[in-house]
Write a protein that binds this DNA or RNA. Structure first.
Length: 611
DNA sequence: GTGAAGGGCCAC
DNA sequence: AAACGTGGCCCTTCAC
């Protein structure tokens, strides 16, 4: 065994520097691997890290796997195993490593474990069991406060007061012979993890975040798998749709150009004006030249009222819609199709928002327009089918449960049309007598309340006078007194404890400027919304774990999630069975948190992602 | 050329 | 011109 004394510099303010001794063993053969895995298998926790030649598992080589109990570190060079990277998945030589990784104990500690587990899953064919993600732990502890970064070096600096050298991270991991500096770096990264975990976990415990930490850790592998699975996009269908959009855009662009240049006498001499239709400045100027009163912004909801009287405004709105479709939902998405799988492997951030919601990018599969023309392009490949399930009004159910509001709960218990039921309660009429207008009204109120809407905004939204809007909100809250109490309580409490929590205990630290009414108001609205939005995220994450476990040995693969919706792909013959497993997992997850209101999951089996 | 900020708009 | 919450992406504009 090689012994290296690695000097790790202490925090600047420390009085003495500290020397940490790292023992590591470089493993390149089956016998040593078996022995090493045996030595580590009794540990409760192991630092786990990998070094790779690319960022995407399908595009590179898994070169090193490091495992460490903190003092004894094994650096496994996979170059020597199984005769090439394509054979790693099946080679018997790696069986001891696979079973160590697959076991629930020892728990594997990794920083952004999604990355490491994806590589293990893709190249070693193993699902990593028992994960502790120090990256997610750091984010949970920060709870949205401050602009701290959460890279491993940042976390080590912040929590251990030491500086971690990451310069070798981007070195050449494909070289035949790795340098001693590379191997040492690899060893150190894994070796430090148990200590990082211990330190972070003290905070997890003292901040009462154990329960939400468990939810996050157990969600890592489902998300890793989902990203590896990818979502099939029919590029022919997408191109057809894109052609239609482009034609519309071209046509509306031409029409808008001529309408706008009418205000400028000499503009259309050569048939084309030089107005950039994507420039707010130029378009506003042109509208002004036409004598059209320009609102202080040119957002759609501002322009809409002017559209009836001014054809140029109507055309502008039409153009904007087409331009948006052609840019945000155009050619670019096709570039994300991985040539080796023919599918889109988007990047999901597990704690994308401090509320706990996921975010998604490259591309953002959570903002694909709802219209069937777009959604039908995401489909099951031949022989497969999609199973789509979403929670019915989950946020309103959470609000009903959290606040314990009797009448709001009753509106759900009736099992009838929820918005109609609330309309009946608000207007004091029989459910059968609710008009479509009244129902739409109640619907907007119900959703507005979740976001802490005020009378002013509600008035603008509905066309009511501000007085009438106030009256309506008053009547709404008089109808649901316990909900009103809860919302007011959140408003009040945030001023004292500067935080809010979800039902899993997920924490949001909320700062505001006492002297700034807008800042206080924003904090109060956030304190009302965060527990609701965040509990919904808790539920989805819990559902993903239950689903993951229940479809493990089936043909089903998780392919997308959108806040309250899960999309699974499976063999055609499996559809009904998987639909039952999916809606069962979702219902069970929600019922762990929401007990005083029925939970409803709508599901269907479909060839494509339309409803 | 690159990057940040602002405006706008898609999703839930 | 949003005092309705959470994101990401595209475009223009402007600074370096």
């Amino acid at each position: 065994m090689k012994r290296i004394a690695a000097c790790v510099s202490a925090a600047a303010q420390a009085l003495q520097s500290r020397t940490m001794e790292i023992y590591f063993q470089l493993i390149r053969d089956a016998d040593s691997l078996k022995k090493a895995c045996g030595e580590l298998s009794g540990e409760e926790y192991l630092g786990f890290d990998v070094e790779t030649t690319a960022l995407e598992p399908s595009q590179g080589e898994l070169r090193l796997v490091q495992l460490s109990n903190g003092t004894d570190t094994k650096v496994i060079d996979l170059r020597g195993f199984g005769g090439g990277i394509d054979a790693l998945r099946s080679t018997e030589e790696l069986a001891p490593l696979r079973s160590l990784l697959a076991a629930e104990r020892p728990v594997k500690i990794a920083h952004n474990a999604k990355f490491d587990t994806k590589w293990a899953r893709h190249h070693l064919g193993v699902e990593v069991g028992g994960v502790y993600d120090t990256y997610l732990a750091s984010i949970l502890i920060a709870a949205g406060e401050g602009d701290r970064r959460h890279g491993l070096a940042d976390v080590v600096q912040y929590f251990l007061g030491r500086t971690l050298d990451k310069t070798e991270q981007v070195s050449d991991w494909s070289a035949n012979e790795l340098t001693s500096s590379q191997v040492e770096y690899a060893a150190k990264d894994a070796a430090i993890m148990p200590e990082v975990r211990a330190k972070l976990d003290e905070r997890i415990v003292s901040d009462e975040l154990r329960s939400v930490m468990a939810i996050e850790n157990e969600c890592v592998m489902p998300i890793a798998e989902m990203e590896l699975n990818g979502f099939f996009l029919d590029s022919d269908r997408w191109r057809e749709q894109l052609e239609r959009v482009k034609t519309t855009q071209q046509k509306t662009a031409d029409e808008l150009q001529s309408l706008l240049s009418a205000g400028v006498a000499q503009a259309s001499l050569f048939g084309r004006s030089e107005i950039n239709l994507d420039s707010i400045d130029q378009v506003s100027q042109a509208l002004e030249n036409l004598g059209i009163p320009i609102p202080s912004s040119t957002r759609a909801w501002e322009l809409q009222p002017l559209a009836d009287d001014h054809p140029a405004v109507a055309k502008l709105l039409e153009y904007r819609a087409a331009a948006k479709a052609a840019s945000s939902f155009g050619e670019n998405i096709l570039e994300f199709i991985d040539p080796s799988t023919g599918r889109i492997h988007a990047d999901f951030r597990q704690i994308g928002a401090p509320t706990g919601r996921f975010s998604c990018s490259k591309p953002n599969l959570q903002q694909i327009p709802h219209e069937a023309e777009y959604r039908r392009c995401f489909r099951a490949p031949d022989g497969r089918t999609l199973v789509i399930a979403d929670y019915s009004q989950i946020e309103l159910r959470i609000l009903a449960h959290i606040s314990g509001d009797r009448r709001f709960i009753e509106a759900f218990e009736s099992g009838a049309d929820f918005h109609a039921a609330t309309a009946a309660q608000i207007f004091g009429i029989q459910p059968a007598d609710v008009t479509p207008d009244q129902r739409a009204f109640a619907k907007r109120l119900n959703f507005g309340v979740v976001y802490g809407i005020g009378a002013q905004r509600f008035a603008a939204m509905t066309g009511l006078s501000e007085r009438d809007a106030e009256d309506t909100l008053r009547r709404y809250f008089a109808t649901y007194p316990q909900m009103n109490e809860w919302l007011r309580g959140q408003s009040k409490r945030v001023l004292l404890d500067h935080s809010a929590r979800t039902l899993s205990g997920r924490l949001a630290r909320i700062s505001f400027d006492d002297n700034d009414r807008r800042s206080v108001g924003a904090a109060q609205r956030y304190a009302k919304n965060m527990p609701i939005q965040g509990t919904s995220a808790d539920i989805l994450k819990r559902a993903l774990r239950l689903l993951h476990d229940s479809i493990r040995d089936t043909s089903a693969k998780l392919v997308n999630i959108v806040h309250d919706e899960i999309v699974v792909e499976c063999d055609r013959t499996d559809g009904e069975r998987i639909e039952a497993l999916l809606s069962g997992a979702m219902r069970s997850a929600a019922e762990e948190f929401v007990t005083s209101v029925p939970v409803v999951v709508d599901s269907q089996i479909a060839d494509d992602w339309t409803k």
